[in-house]
Design a protein around this nucleic acid. Structure first.
Lengths: 232, 232
DNA sequence: ATAATTCCTTTTGTAGGACATAATGGGGGC
DNA sequence: GCCCCCATTATGTCCTACAAAAGGAATTAT
């Protein structure tokens, strides 16, 4: 279906800024700059490309937003390590995304939850378990809606932190608002807000005694209501 | 550790362009525009914000890159549906990323592979299986390096397509180059390039006769050499 | 009267110049 | 030799002007 759109690009009328942006990106790649290297000045780039400094600045502004370059007055610009998720963050607004994308992200978050098991069993420590037990201990006090969500975030957030994978954790955190948004919508439509048979407390118990397969099965059961929502 | 960096932002010296960008984003959110709505003209925005059109244009250029807005001459600008992965694509260059991020992405890709099972068993069709069998049938002819990679991509790509989740599929496709890059590096270092005990052919067999748990176990075995690389 | 064409208006895209600002590196003073 | 101050310089911001494209209006032909 939309498979084609990945192979052949929609051919949008590109402006000078677009061209300069891609030329700059290509230039950075070709010269194999490493983070920290100094880049030519704006005026030099403009002259070399045969465009006005204005256009160059618009293109640079984009790269700057992505964190690919850092600029400081007088020093000029230096290549930086882009924050890959920073750009995602700006765009991940439930209100801006289409229905299909929202559905995709909902599923993606479930996939990420299921994938926790392998990494967690590779890196969990007794201290981590203690923190988790602390979190579930406070669960009983927090049954109302705002507290429940807060608790969800604390628990699952800790799990992600235990993977020792920052990117993974941040990515999941960014997906959460979209997830909650879709959930709220679905609940408004069909009314049910079931909760899985396996609780947070059960999951912690599995972490202490079971293996990664057990944990994954437990997580699947914990998330079952969400999986049941998925359409074939 | 870098947990703090998510709660309190590094306070970078923001330029007018940065401010305008965030103001615009906030404005779009607050007015709850829907895709297709017309936005004020550049000059009006500049006047309202008390900055030059130049600054506004730099900010708009960023939003345009993210696909949040579309502009056509005379018509003005309209809100568009951002392509959430488009921005990621621009930044996901193995040469630009730090070592930690590369490692994170390597792991993330493994997590995504493990998560295939649930969605695939929800949506696979007999036709999909037939295509997969076709792909593995050609496996024998392609053992040399470039062909092997191509075959890997064909097989795993088809699996992702079977999830019916476009975002998931594109995301994985983007991660692949990074994955291969890390792999090449690791192999250069320690020389071994093992392959899992479970082959593609085995996986297809499981798809035909087993359940999602079987498939997941099979995938884990298939990816075992990669998992073994992970450090605790 | 309707349809097609042409012209006009409007808004974005690009150019070029000017000046403020801040940080750096060197020169001068102690 | 160390510290402070200043000139230099690259970026940040503003302004003006004009080209180009695309809608809309007006005009003409059928």
């Amino acid at each position: 279906m939309s498979d084609l759109k990945n192979d052949i690009r929609p051919l949008e009328p590109s402006t000078m800024t677009d061209l300069v942006e891609s030329r700059l990106r290509e230039y950075l790649k070709r010269k194999s700059f490493v983070p920290g290297d100094a880049l030519p000045k704006e005026q030099e780039l403009a002259d070399a490309l045969g465009v006005s400094r204005n256009v160059v600045r618009e293109a640079l502004s984009r790269l700057r937003m992505l964190g690919m370059i850092d600029t400081r007055k007088k020093r000029g610009m230096i290549l930086a390590q882009p924050d890959i998720l920073g750009s995602l963050e700006r765009v991940l607004d439930p209100l801006l995304l289409g229905k299909n994308t929202l559905k995709d992200i909902f599923e993606l978050r479930l996939v990420l939850e299921m994938g926790l098991a392998d990494l967690i069993y590779l890196r969990k420590t007794p201290e981590d378990i203690a923190v988790l037990e602390d979190i579930v201990a406070q669960e009983v006090n927090k049954q109302q809606k705002p507290f429940r969500v807060e608790h969800e975030i604390a628990f699952h957030g800790k799990l992600y932190q235990m993977t020792g994978n920052d990117t993974y954790m941040r990515f999941q955190k960014m997906l959460l608002p979209v997830f909650e948004y879709v959930l709220d919508y679905e609940i408004q439509v069909d009314g049910r807000a079931d909760v899985g048979k396996v609780t947070h407390r059960d999951l912690v118990e599995i972490l202490k005694t079971g293996d990664s397969e057990d944990f994954r099965r437990g997580m699947k059961a914990h998330l079952k209501p969400h999986f049941d929502r998925l359409k074939p």
